[in-house]
Design a protein around this nucleic acid. Structure first.
Lengths: 345, 345
DNA sequence: TTGTATGCGTTATCAT
DNA sequence: ATGATAACGCATACAA
């Protein structure tokens, strides 16, 4: 009884119209009164609203989307759902989207090329009104092709996409890294600095590596290959692996600059598990200031980013385009990097 | 030139049909060959596929959804995007969904009633083929009403929904708490145990509180109100607040059982900031085994859950219903709880 | 102020 | 084996 063989379909505008004794378009007009200039009599408006309530009518977004060519959805691709940096960012995106009456599809690439590619394909199949991506592996060319096909506004975090219509939010991490490493040397007094990074084909890799190199040069310090590690993949586990690798080497730097917090934390944990003391045996600095940076002991010295602000910049820039407030050339917004001294370095 | 005034609409089946010199339904048949029994000549199949490639055609999911009344999307509501427990769970859901060619809409309630309510409304407006929810505030009544309206399969984590068609994945946390507290007393030798919980109207609150009470009774131990705290809200910050509150009291228990890891960690951090030693001044036990439990020093003694397994149970149960493999009465799946001793208690 | 007619891009039911 | 035709639920141009 509570489960009829033909489950009650949800009511449509036709049902409402029939019950209210008006035509279907009239129902549409009542429900979207702002959309049109035509006015409707108070009487029919009430009849319609009563019928809506009586039937428990809810508009069908699929049909509306097909008709209006707008989905009222935006898609957000982040690089790692386990990385605390993206949580406040995603939340900010959702909050703003909700204020605009938009839903958000969140996808997670795990920094992997095939996942990023799949995301583009999914977005092409299911047109959304806008896209926010944290890109690590896609080429400019692929993004170009995507834009041509998808015809949808797109904002990107972290990489410089060379496309006239792709807005970009980014941090000047080359400069931030330069300043941080310089600070380690000049203010904290470290005589050498190691670098824990990722392969060159991840965009932030070369940028931060360049900042490091520039700082070492600026300080007149040589760069020792024994102090370098480039096999990271942004995860905590890869930081642990870097520590295991380092421990096989003869000579350690007094301080290690890690490309992000998650790797810095894995690096510290593995060394501590092996009985070493941070920062006495080796100091560590990270990048991002995720919540775990204030959980680990010693608390992690790092470069803070501002994920809420970044999320808002991303989504506001996107809605500027979606709602047509802006059609001009690409916009480039810079997010701050804040040196955040704690106890690990 | 790269930006015509009338942006190239993406090609439709009609465009493909025209180019291939066939009718539009034929294109549909070629593209969904499994869907129908009719066969198509190899020649037209090739013509169609060529045209598809030439135009870069992608099917429009909105139109398909309207026609088939299936969206190829499922919705997932988690309680806190910042809580590491949900990350592997969400990832597992996404992975399985992708294998079924489904996309996932992720929403985040922050344990708040209005967000949970909004989620239901969003899902009603934008029909999805299935729903997975981590429910904290919605009543059985509201979920009932939702099911009636949405006509969509639904699987819930963590609470016992009294509805014949809502599948449930849950952990026997009453028993797990009982066993953990008993273990603290009998194996670890603590003479008393405190309880750091949440208000009674959050479902896991009473369950774990009952497990605690039962264990105390079983051990013949009195329950001291000075050892209890019920104002938590699952967040790290509320754990810190509990510690500040505790520090104003005259008498501490030797060990505190916290309702989840995030609060346990906040509790520990605040006490450590005030100069106390964990576990000597007070020991702490948590629940969940999130990644941060192995980052904090001392590592957190806790009750591990199995989020990947839970996510898979949720999504597989859901797809069993979506794909019609199962129409019977509700299914109840139990997820394990594993006592995980470390250094904090 | 309201009703009629049309089309968004598919899938599905007829024919042929 | 393929082509007309209709329908999904809605928004909108046009007619009345």
């Amino acid at each position: 009884m509570s489960r009829p063989n033909h489950p009650a379909k949800s009511p449509t505008m036709r049902d409402v119209a029939r019950l209210a004794g008006v035509s279907q378009p009239t129902v549409s007009r009542v429900l979207n009164d702002t959309a049109t200039t035509v006015s409707i009599s108070e009487e029919t408006r009430q009849k319609v609203l009563d019928a809506v309530k009586a039937l428990g009518y809810h508009p069908n977004m699929t049909a509306r989307s097909l008709r209006t060519q707008k989905s009222q959805m935006i898609a957000l691709m982040i690089a790692d759902i386990s990385n605390g940096f993206y949580h406040p960012m995603a939340r900010a995106v959702q909050d703003v989207a909700r204020k605009h009456n938009y839903d958000v599809i969140i996808a997670n690439s795990d920094h992997r090329y095939d996942n990023e590619k799949h995301f583009l394909e999914a977005v092409i199949r299911r047109p959304v009104d806008g896209v926010i991506m944290v890109v690590f592996r896609l080429t400019d060319e692929e993004i170009d092709r995507f834009i041509t096909i998808a015809q949808t506004p797109i904002v990107v975090l972290g990489v410089q996409i060379e496309h006239p219509e792709v807005d970009v939010v980014w941090a000047d991490d080359e400069k931030a890294t330069f300043e941080a490493v310089t600070w380690l040397i000049e203010e904290r007094g470290y005589s050498q600095v190691g670098f824990l990074g990722v392969p060159d084909d991840y965009p932030p890799g070369p940028r931060r590596w360049n900042g490091y190199k520039r700082a070492m040069e600026h300080a007149g310090l040589p760069i020792f290959s024994d102090y370098l590690y480039f096999q990271g993949d942004f995860t905590l586990e890869s930081g642990r692996k870097a520590a295991r690798e380092l421990m096989t080497r003869q000579d350690w730097p007094p301080v290690m600059f890690a490309l992000n917090d998650l790797m810095a934390i894995g690096f510290i944990l593995e060394l501590q598990d092996a009985g070493y003391n941070i920062p006495d045996d080796i100091a560590v600095m990270g990048f991002d200031d995720i919540p775990e940076a204030s959980i680990i002991r010693p608390h992690l010295t790092t470069i803070a980013q501002t994920p809420v602000d970044i999320g808002q910049k991303l989504v506001n820039t996107l809605f500027d385009r979606i709602e047509g407030n802006r059609n001009g050339p690409k916009r480039i917004l810079e997010a701050p990097c804040i040196l955040t001294p704690r106890q690990s370095a």
